[in-house]
Structure formats: C-alpha cells, structure tokens
Amino acid sequence: MKESDKYTSWQLIVLISLRILIGWHLLYEGITKLINPNWTSAGFLMESKWILSGFSQWIISNPGILNFVDFLNTWGLTAIGLGLIVGLFTRTAAISGAILLLIYYLNNPPLIGLEYSVPMEGNYLIVSKTLIEAVALFVLVVFPTDSVAGLDVFIYRFKNRKNRRGK
C-alpha cells in the first residue's frame, strides 16, 4: 500500500507542514551559524549540565575537537534543514535531527536543581521546546511523507524500477 493511501489528505497536509516547518527552523539555525565567523558551540557547551557535562568539558578543552563539533553542528543543521524541506534523504535527516536535538536537550535539560546562568526564553519544567521538537521529528520518522512529497519520490521510483527489472 502506498503511503498516500494510508493518510487522509488532512493528515498528509499536517505531516508535510510539520516537516517543512522544522526544516525551516533548523536550516535557519545552521545558516546563522554559518555566516557568523565568531559563532562557536563553546558557550553552549560551557553551560552544559547533567549527564553530558563531562563530555562537553572535554570538547571545549580540545580546540581541534571543538572546531570539529562546530563544523558538524553548522553543516549538520543546514543539511538536515534542507533535507526536511525538500524531502531528500528525509528519514536520515529526521533521525539525525532528532538525535541532535536530543543532545542539545540533554546538555541543558530544565530539571529541578539544575541552574543556568543564561535564562531560558520560556518557562520549562523537565519538558522544553527542544525536547518537543526532537519528538516531533521522531513522529515524522514513523509517519513518513517523503514517498509522497519530496525528492525522495525519485529515489523510490529508481529503486522500484531496479527491483522490477531484477525480477
């Protein structure tokens, strides 16, 4: 059964909108970092609390690794954002985006007892927007729309044709 047959058109519209909106957000986050030569994840990592703080400190203390992490962040966000918007390698983009967002969340989760020097832009208790965005990406992984709307359609077609010829 094709995915387009699984979803009603409203379901499709909502799922595709969610995909494009998250893609838009991540792409802009990536591009802002890309054009700011002074951007670094060091400030964020320095604030890291909870289970990843040791790891973050290790990253900061190694300029080479910090550079690499900055590179991964900038280009990762840009690529994930692009992938989600145009629907190319959508599944990979959604999974890596969700993991990246989870890492952000785990670095500064709004847990009771963890205090941050930079105030958050909203009021959170355990759940933050980052966590919700990560989960939303997982939603997109289990309710894929790329075979309907996205450049992945061409990849599927190409694969199908190959399979048919194989038979």
């Binding site: 595709i16 918007i85 145009v86 992945d152």
Partner: peptide
C-alpha cells in the same frame, strides 16, 4: 509536482533570508 513541494518553500526561505 508533489515531489517538488519543498522547492518553492526553499525559494521563499532564500528570499526571506
């Protein structure tokens, strides 16, 4: 057309940027 849904969005994004 459906496969290319994202492309105009990308165009809008670039314009806004």
């Amino acid at each position: 057309l459906k496969a290319l849904t994202g492309i105009p969005v990308l165009g809008v994004f670039a314009f806004e940027l």
